[in-house]
Design a binder for these strands. Structure first.
Lengths: 117, 117
DNA sequence: CATGCCTACCTCGCTTTCCGAGGTAACGGT
DNA sequence: ACCGTTACCTCGGAAAGCGAGGTAGGCATG
């Protein structure tokens, strides 16, 4: 199904919050759906496990970046819908900047020779 | 000194081998010098500590990606110079591809909305 | 009515990898 | 002879993803 090769686990470290916050930028979603979106958007490159996702959601909620509400499941168990708070939007913007800095650094070191600075 | 804000440690996870291999693409260098290059090339974004670097160097050497030789120090202790092997070049290329896949995935999820797929 | 399956949530222990602190060795200057 | 600097190495702790496993409610099936 998802042929995109999975990425070394270590690389993903630290990016999950960014991915989650970005996924919730315009919609509110519940956990399973968040994983699904991330997997689809990344063409299967990322497939965070539940053991990774839920702790992150809880941490972001504790930090005030996300708000959550329980809703009755549509023919299934209840779901917890998460949405971005104002603080969450700020956190998202910060995470985006941080990612850009990070990715830019890797590009300079790894893809631009020492001479073409 | 290096004003570029340091990056959250977690983000760096898994990228050090790439940075090291790339730094050694055209030259042979010793440990301290590798750190220095990475720091300069990334404008201070990355400043891997010795506790991070040496284990990585040893692992890459064990895996056959690097070869190393001791040389007398020029007014200082002896140094261990590392250079890329043929296998190391292959590893570098693989790490570059992996990084590209990874960065592309983050871009799609975090920076491109769900609509502009 | 009871059993079992599916969805969705949550938790636990393991592993990997980075960091800071601290330790060793060789050389030069005083 | 001693100390400071350079460069190497190691160790313990912390962060975060992963897989496995566990709970609960609703539905279909016997």
């Amino acid at each position: 199904m998802f042929e995109g090769r999975r990425i070394q686990a270590q690389l993903l470290k630290g990016t999950l919050p960014l991915l989650v916050l970005a996924t919730l930028r315009d919609t509110e979603l519940h956990g399973y759906e968040i994983v699904k979106r991330i997997r689809e958007q990344s063409s299967g490159t990322f497939a965070p496990s539940e053991g990774s996702l839920y702790p992150v959601l809880h941490r972001l909620e504790t930090e005030g970046a996300l708000e959550a509400t329980w809703r009755a499941g549509d023919g299934g168990p209840r779901r917890r819908y998460y949405r971005l708070t104002r603080a969450g939007l700020t956190a998202l913007e910060r995470a985006e900047r941080e990612w850009s800095t990070f990715a830019g650094g890797v590009r300079r070191v790894a893809f631009e020779g020492p001479s073409d600075a």
